[in-house]
């Protein structure tokens, strides 16, 4: 078991955001986390990456606790959190090198992987003199994702990775994620974009009323209705009658 979440509970202002949540992710799986705004997706991810503390429950990665100061578990995980911590002053190349050095990677290896990631995701690779601060939202997002990938983590966690991405980049991302999971790595993605989620997911975890419901993708393939419609129904979506807009 790569990631094992057991009975996680989190309260915010006395309200339970997550209630006894369980989630298990194996190598080679891609779990898509879906829920309404404010349902607790980012909170769950923040707890997994040890930025927010759960009130109850435990989270383990390959049997180790993430927040153990003596452990090196974090080096096996790649994260793009809700807040994308790119350093605006650096160029992409510099930022990836900086992140790679934190993981104690060889400089030549960092350079090769940086080149690969930049070439793959960009139609025109940005100049090494262009700083991240001058990038668009989508480009910053891609930079954050590359920083999560540069050390080839066993578990990749992405919070809303498709936000701000153009259709080319998003499709490239889907191809990359599918290839990455097929090579035996696990992925946890949170997104509202059903189109891309359907293309990458092996499992879908829906957060509803502070609880989590997990389904394999075969569950959705067995039905005739569209993926988006099934998810909407599971979330309890009721189309509202549109009153006259005066």
């Amino acid at each position: 078991m790569l990631l094992d979440i057991e009975c996680i509970t989190k309260k915010k202002k006395k309200k339970e955001v997550l209630k006894k949540v369980n989630l298990k992710i194996e190598a080679g799986e891609c779990h898509c986390l879906i829920g309404k705004n404010g349902s607790g997706k980012s909170t769950l991810i923040n707890m997994i990456i040890d930025v927010v503390e759960p009130d109850e429950g435990i989270i383990k990665f390959s049997g180790d606790f993430l927040n153990d100061p003596a452990s090196a578990v974090k080096s096996k995980i790649g994260v793009l959190p809700e807040f994308n911590p790119v350093i605006d002053e650096f160029s992409i190349q510099d930022y990836l090198e900086y992140v790679g050095l934190i993981y104690k990677m060889d400089k030549e290896l960092i350079r090769k992987r940086s080149e690969f990631l930049i070439q793959f995701f960009f139609e025109e690779p940005p100049s090494s003199k262009k700083i991240i601060g001058s990038f668009s939202t989508g480009m910053k997002m891609k930079t954050g994702i590359w920083a999560a990938l540069v050390h080839k983590p066993e578990l990749l966690i992405l919070d809303e990775p498709f936000d701000g991405m153009d259709i080319f980049s998003a499709n490239n991302m889907v191809s990359f994620l599918n290839d990455y999971k097929e090579k035996g790595n696990a992925i946890l993605v949170s997104s509202h974009d059903m189109l891309y989620m359907e293309k990458v997911a092996t499992h879908v975890s829906i957060i509803k009323d502070a609880e989590i419901l997990s389904f394999p993708m075969s569950y959705f393939h067995a039905n005739n209705s569209s993926f988006e419609k099934q998810i909407s129904e599971l979330l309890g979506y009721n189309p509202k009658e549109l009153p006259e807009f005066e």
Partner: peptide, 17 residues
């Protein structure tokens, strides 16, 4: 340096660097 701290927090459990 919130960003710098976060860059490290997400990847390691100490701030020696």
């Amino acid at each position: 340096n919130r960003t710098l701290f976060l860059t490290h927090i997400l990847r390691e459990n100490h701030f020696k660097s």
